[in-house]
Simulated scan of single mutants.
Amino acid sequence: MSDAPRPERPTIEQIREVCQPDSIRKRKNAEHWTGDVFTRSISPYLTRTFVHAGISANGVTVGMILCGWAAAAAFFIPGIAGPILAAVLAMLQMLLDASDGEVARWTRKMGPRGIFLDRFAHTTTESLIPIAIGLRLTIESSDNNWAWAFVGAVLGVLVLVNKSLNEASRMSRVESGLDLPKKTDGTSAPRVGWVATARRAANFVPIHRAYHSVEQTLVVLAIAIVGLAAGFNGVAVALILLAVAAPLVIAGHMVAILTSSMLRNPHT
Results as ranks from 00 to 15, higher is better:
Gly152Lys: 01
Leu95Met: 05
Asn29His: 08
Met94Leu: 08
Pro83Val: 05
Thr123Gly: 14
Leu165Thr: 08
Ala53Lys: 14
Leu218Cys: 03
His208Val: 01
Ile24Gln: 10
Gly68Ser: 04
Ile129His: 01
Ala149Tyr: 10
Leu85Val: 12
Ala243Gln: 14
Phe120Pro: 00
Ala201Trp: 13
Val60Glu: 05
Arg48Pro: 00
Arg48Thr: 00
Val51Gln: 02
Ile42Met: 10
Ala147Arg: 15
Phe76His: 15
Val226Ser: 09
Pro112Ser: 12
Pro112Leu: 06
Thr49Pro: 03
Asp22Tyr: 08
Thr39Cys: 01
Asn162Leu: 04
Gly186Ser: 09
Asp143Ser: 12
Ser127Thr: 14
Ser164Arg: 09
Arg170Gln: 09
Ala86Pro: 04
Asp3Ile: 11
Ala201Arg: 12
Asn58Pro: 01
Arg16Lys: 10
Phe116Ser: 11
Ile223Val: 14
Phe76Ile: 06
Ser2Tyr: 11
Val214Leu: 10
Gly152Ser: 07
Leu248Cys: 12
Val88Ile: 15
Val62Gly: 03
Asn58Glu: 08
Val174Lys: 11
Ala238Glu: 00
Asp97Gly: 13
Glu31Phe: 03
Lys163Trp: 02
Ser176Val: 00
Ser261Asp: 15
Val192Gly: 01
Ile84Pro: 00
Tyr211His: 07
Thr138Leu: 09
Lys163Ser: 06
Met94Ser: 12
Ala238Asn: 00
Pro190Leu: 07
Glu13Met: 06
Leu239Ala: 04
Pro10Thr: 05
Val192Ala: 10
Lys26Gln: 14
Arg209Ala: 12
Leu221Val: 09
Leu165Tyr: 05
His253Arg: 11
Val18Glu: 08
Ser142Met: 12
Ala198Gly: 15
Pro78Asn: 01
Val159Thr: 10
Pro78Met: 01
Asp179Thr: 15
Glu102Gln: 15
Ile12Gln: 08
Val103Arg: 02
Ala30Tyr: 13
Thr184Lys: 10
Pro190Asn: 10
Thr268Trp: 13
Asn203Ala: 11
Gly101Glu: 03
Ile250Val: 08
Leu46Gly: 03
Leu242Pro: 11
Ile77Asp: 05
His122Phe: 06
His267Met: 10
Tyr45Trp: 14
Thr138Glu: 14
Val244Glu: 12
Met171Leu: 11
Val235Ala: 08
His32Asp: 09
Gly59Leu: 08
Ser141His: 13
Pro44Met: 04
Arg113Tyr: 13
Gly35Tyr: 01
Leu218Tyr: 04
Leu137Tyr: 06
Ala72Met: 13
Trp146Thr: 09
His52Asp: 15
Ser169Thr: 06
Glu167Phe: 04
Asp22Ile: 04
Glu140Lys: 07
